[in-house]
Design a binder for these strands. Structure first.
Lengths: 132, 132
DNA sequence: GCATAATCATTGATTAGTCAAGTATATGTC
DNA sequence: GACATATACTTGACTAATCAATGATTATGC
């Protein structure tokens, strides 16, 4: 009864991100948005990527929206979907936080797995299949 | 963001335990008690074993106590500690649920790891280091 | 073209857990 | 033997998530 521990331990390492005013989950969202075409994702897709339910996503994004890290955008023709879009402020925070996050990820990932110079990407990929 | 998924997936498989009126966590508690000397454990030790905080344990055990699966027992000389003891009813439920749980565990564990004929024990041991 | 079904997002109610503080008891030191 | 500190547990306040229900919109079958 607690695999969540692993996730908690990793997430805790990322507590340093608070120096940028965001947490692990926020960073993950920004990361996913930033690497998506148009820096946007449908809420349904986002929920699928992070492994939360739709309502979980709604609730997780609320404060990020208030902070101005992300904003809403309507789908071109499907009125049911609402895109989550990275704002300029969000992109800026992400760019700043990236360095911190990479440093943390470098402490976690075994060096031999560090092929390209993108520790966070590698970490998320490693956890990937199961996590992100 | 979700290693908890693994745990959730496994726990969900154990939903069948509801036919015995208990859930995965309840079964885990019963399991741990049943294999402890005197069928009892200090709350602190239990919390350590399942990876919850002390308060988490207090809250998890409350309904089980109401259902009469477990009961309290004072420590012989240390008035701070309170043992969690398996009741006769609890043992009975455990014995019944064990068969269901073993069947489920057998579906999850790779056959080559099934040495002795105690799938649940093996499963918990496999998850062990990190989980139980 | 209309009825029915499916999809997307939000909301209220609930659950499972955390942390911080509090209570009670034990232990070590002087 | 009294005080400081540590340990065991409980409680209140809070957080993060779930589910079930709902509203809105789009897709499908006939």
């Amino acid at each position: 009864m607690n695999l969540a521990k692993i996730q908690a331990v990793i997430a805790r390492r990322f507590d340093k991100l608070s120096m940028h005013g965001i947490g692990f989950n926020d960073f993950l969202i920004l990361y996913l948005l930033q690497q998506s075409p148009g820096e946007k994702l449908r809420r349904a897709d986002l929920s699928e990527k992070v492994g939360l339910t739709a309502s979980g996503i709604t609730r997780m994004l609320l404060p990020m929206e208030k902070m101005g890290l992300i904003k809403r955008e309507a789908h071109e023709w499907d009125a049911r979907v609402s895109y989550v879009v990275l704002t300029a402020a969000g992109r800026q925070i992400y760019e700043d936080a990236k360095y911190t996050a990479n440093a943390i990820a470098k402490e976690i990932i075994p060096v031999e797995n560090l092929k390209n110079n993108q520790p966070v990407a590698e970490l998320f990929k490693l956890l990937g299949g199961t996590i992100v």
